[in-house]
Amino acid sequence: GSKLPPGWEKRMSRSSGRVYYFNHITNASQWERPSG
């Protein structure tokens, strides 16, 4: 298991139950796992 880039964390969408990734530094969110 590799770590996520700085700022990123795994989140669960309440509406759909899907996992997404959220960056608390930039407030960005995306479905794809961030690389870096």
Rank of each mutant, 00 (worst) to 15 (best):
K3M: 12
Y20V: 02
Y21P: 00
S16R: 07
N23H: 04
I25A: 08
R33F: 14
W31P: 03
H24W: 14
P5Y: 02
K3V: 11
R33C: 05
R33H: 12
R11N: 02
S13E: 14
Y21E: 00
S15P: 13
S13Y: 10
R18E: 07
P6N: 07
E9Y: 05
P6F: 14
K10Q: 12
E32N: 10
R11I: 06
R14M: 15
R14T: 15
R14N: 14
W8F: 01
G1K: 10
N23L: 02
E9I: 09
W31T: 07
V19A: 08
S13G: 07
S13I: 13
P5Q: 03
K3G: 15
E9R: 06
N23S: 05
A28N: 09
V19D: 05
F22P: 01
N23K: 01
R33A: 10
R18T: 06
R14Y: 12
K10D: 02
V19R: 04
P6Y: 13
F22A: 01
F22K: 03
R14V: 14
K10C: 09
W8G: 00
P5L: 04
S15L: 12
S29P: 02
W31I: 08
V19I: 13
G1H: 12
M12H: 12
S29H: 11
S15C: 14
W31L: 08
S13H: 15
N23M: 02
F22M: 02
S29R: 14
M12P: 06
G17R: 07
R18M: 06
N23Y: 04
P34L: 01
G17L: 05
R11L: 07
A28D: 06
P34Y: 00
S16V: 06
Y20D: 01
Y21H: 00
G7C: 04
S2N: 13
G1M: 10
R14A: 15
N23W: 01
F22S: 01
V19N: 04
G36W: 15
L4C: 01
W31K: 06
T26Y: 06
G1N: 11
N23T: 01
S35F: 10
S16D: 10
G17Q: 08
K10M: 13
S35G: 14
W8K: 00
Y21Q: 00
G36M: 11
N23I: 03
Y21S: 00
G1V: 11
S35V: 13
L4P: 15
E9Q: 08
S15H: 15
A28Q: 15
R11Q: 04
A28F: 10
L4Y: 04
T26Q: 05
S13T: 11
W31F: 10
Q30R: 04
P5D: 03
Y20W: 07
R33T: 10
R18Y: 05
S35Q: 12
P6Q: 08
S35W: 10
R33N: 09
A28I: 14
F22G: 00
S35D: 13
S29W: 15
S29V: 15
H24Q: 09
I25R: 08
H24V: 15
Q30S: 08
Q30M: 05
E9T: 08
Y20I: 02
G1R: 07
N27V: 04
Y20S: 00
N27T: 06
A28P: 01
P34N: 01
G36Q: 12
E9K: 06
T26A: 04
G7K: 02
F22Q: 02
K10A: 11
S2P: 11
P6E: 10
Q30H: 04
P34W: 03
L4S: 02
G1W: 05
Y21I: 00
K10G: 04
K3P: 14
G36I: 13
Q30N: 02
Q30F: 04
S2V: 11
Q30G: 02
S15N: 13
Y20K: 02
S15G: 10
T26R: 03
S13N: 09
Y21V: 00
R11W: 03
W8L: 01
W8S: 00
G17A: 06
E9H: 09
V19F: 11
R11K: 08
N27L: 13
S29N: 05
R18H: 06
S15T: 14
R11G: 03
P34R: 00
Y20L: 02
S2K: 10
G7H: 09
Y21L: 00
A28R: 14
S15D: 14
S16M: 06
N27H: 14
P6R: 07
A28Y: 10
E32R: 08
Y21K: 01
S15A: 11
W8A: 00
V19L: 07
S29M: 15
S2F: 11
V19T: 09
Q30K: 03
K10P: 06
S13A: 11
G7W: 06
G1L: 10
P6I: 09
G1Y: 08
P6V: 09
K3W: 12
S35E: 12
G1A: 12
R33L: 11
F22D: 00
S2I: 12
W31V: 07
S2Y: 13
V19G: 02
W8I: 00
S35L: 11
W31R: 08
